[in-house]
Design a binder for these strands. Structure first.
Length: 492
RNA sequence: GGCGUUUUGGCCGAGUGGCUAGGCAGAGGUCUGCAAAACCUCGUACAGCGGUUCGAAUCCGCUAGACGCCUCCA
């Protein structure tokens, strides 16, 4: 029987601002849409955190036995750099600076995006549609919204009429704001704008002559507004109403608000049952963002080539660091925090490696099934990975006590412990065990031989030789660990 | 200025009205030829002030700080 039938999953819904019991539209199936990146530069760690948060959601839903269709778009049409009419889109701008074709920029950074997410062990989504691949669908939606009188055309551009929409619907329902407030509080009213109101947003923009990315439309040559693509693609692949929509907290307004407005006009229904927002990654007390220069790239962490960290950290250690915080909490990035996370991660991996050394007995002195349920309970409570990790460290303690034979475990319980640890560490959290990959067989053989020689020296009380072997290996980054059951080693 | 979030022990971070995660660092111990590693044990912290309550870090109010959104942004 599927686990979702016995596990009650609760999800915090940004729309209701409360945790709700998750019930998909079609039993056993989940449709999830997550706003993907605009591929105009390398993804930074902040971007990665959001996608990792939803990777956790994706992985756990699958673990519960749901069949998940996970759609995450690539924004390759670019969107306006600012709201000014002469704005050119980000991708076209970058292309001019670097003197290459826009699609070359798109290709380069799409590849970078995929490579980075793969390193950090994110699963690929089920469908990864592009904005430029759905121009036709977007044009159709604009026509529909125009026909319903909720948009207007000016000079080859089409704008959504927010104030009119707000007469019958609540624009701001998700972000908890009232359009009246923002009308009064808009600082600089942009007089030259062709929009009726500053709150209106573009569905279609006329392409200026220099604009390279352009498509024909009933309103002339142009390109779609940013908010529209997500509506077009989510509707196409998941339906008019689907289960989960995710994205970074900073997309709540206006992006997701606009999506709701577009869908409500076009389809007359609420597009999303559960809105999920992942929180920001903070660096030096500020949000990590490309535009401010306050960011670190994943590769700079993995190689150690940066000014923030004292050393390089593996993708898994980095992933573990982020999983130790809840996805809805702001997370502070720092060298100390990453170092602490790395050590904890190593400890967890060590315990997993030690599972094979445990001897099973007839009876168990530890309650494995109760522990296992606590792991599920943690994740069922709005994907609480920090609490899950705390439970996993409890399992680490079990493993160590079992190794010292201070606790006992039956073979059935041992299998359950082992399987559950593997499921949560590898399948759900998506961590990888690099500790064994570091050493190849030949190296293992050589070190084992040296360990043997050192043991002989020690048996002969030849401390000088035994210490020499130990110290010289240490210089090479191979640490010997003398334990009760003999000597083991780790490669740094 | 508006809206919202947040403030937890040396650091990072969970959390429920009473049973007070976890990791790192630190202290003590076990083990060891020594060392390292490993393991075990230990910390009663919740911004300040006031209120509700038998009881609050957890609920309410005020004050202060921080952050996010209000423009592209994960």
């Amino acid at each position: 029987m599927e686990l979702y039938k016995t596990n009650q999953l609760k999800i915090y819904n940004s729309l209701s601002k409360s945790k709700e019991i998750f019930k998909p539209i079609v039993e056993g199936n989940v449709g999830m849409y997550v706003c993907g990146p605009t591929v105009y530069s390398n993804v930074h760690l902040g971007n990665v955190r959001t996608f990792m948060s939803f990777d956790l959601v994706f992985r756990y839903l699958k673990q519960l036995g749901f069949k998940v269709r996970y759609v995450r778009n690539i924004t390759d049409a670019g969107h306006l750099e600012n709201d000014a009419d002469e704005g050119e889109d980000r991708i076209a701008k970058k292309a001019r600076i670097e003197k290459i074709e826009p699609m070359e920029v798109v290709q380069r950074y799409t590849v970078d995006f995929h490579e980075t997410l793969q390193k950090i062990n994110n699963l690929p989504p089920s469908i990864e549609p592009t904005a430029t691949g759905h121009i036709v669908e977007q044009i159709e939606i604009i026509k529909d919204i125009l026909a319903k009188g909720m948009a207007y055309e000016v000079n080859g551009s089409v704008y959504f009429d927010v104030l009119k929409y707000n007469e019958t619907e609540h624009y701001g329902i998700l972000s908890g704001r009232n359009i009246e407030d923002s009308v009064h509080n808009t600082r600089e009213l942009d007089g030259q704008s062709e929009k009726k109101n500053p709150q209106d947003f573009a569905l279609w923009k006329r392409a200026e002559e220099k604009h390279i990315m352009r498509w024909p439309s009933p309103w002339g040559e142009g390109f779609p507004g940013w908010h529209l693509e997500c509506t077009a693609m989510s509707t196409k692949y998941l339906g008019e109403t689907f289960d989960i929509h995710g994205g970074g907290m900073d997309l709540k307004f206006p992006h997701h608000e606009c999506e709701i407005a577009q869908s409500k006009v076009k389809n007359k229904v609420n597009p999303v049952n559960y809105w999920m927002h992942a929180n920001m990654l903070i660096l030096n007390g500020q949000k990590m963002a490309k535009s401010t220069g306050n960011y670190i790239l994943p590769n700079e962490i993995f190689t150690g080539e940066n000014k923030i960290l004292s050393k390089a950290f593996s993708p898994s250690a980095t992933r573990f660091f982020m999983m130790q915080a809840h996805y809805r909490s702001v997370l502070d990035f720092s060298n100390d925090a990453l170092e602490a996370a790395e050590k904890g991660y190593m400890k967890l991996m060590e315990a997993l490696n030690n599972l094979k050394n445990i001897e099973v007995g007839k009876v168990s002195s530890i309650n494995v099934s109760e522990w296992k349920q606590r792991c599920y309970d943690a994740m069922n409570d709005d994907f609480n990975s920090p609490v899950l990790i705390a439970n996993l460290f409890e399992a680490v303690k079990y493993v160590n006590l079992l190794l010292e034979k201070k606790e006992t475990i039956s073979s059935a319980d041992f299998e359950e412990l082992k399987n559950t640890m593997n499921i949560f560490v590898y399948d759900v959290l998506g961590l990888q065990n690099n500790s064994e990959e570091n050493a190849c067989d030949k190296l293992n053989g050589v070190v084992e031989m040296l360990i043997k020689m050192r043991k002989e020296a020690r048996d002969n009380r030849d401390w000088a030789l035994s210490d020499k072997i130990r110290d010289e290996l240490a210089v090479l980054g191979i640490q010997l660990k003398d334990g009760k059951e003999g000597t083991t080693f780790s490669v740094n």
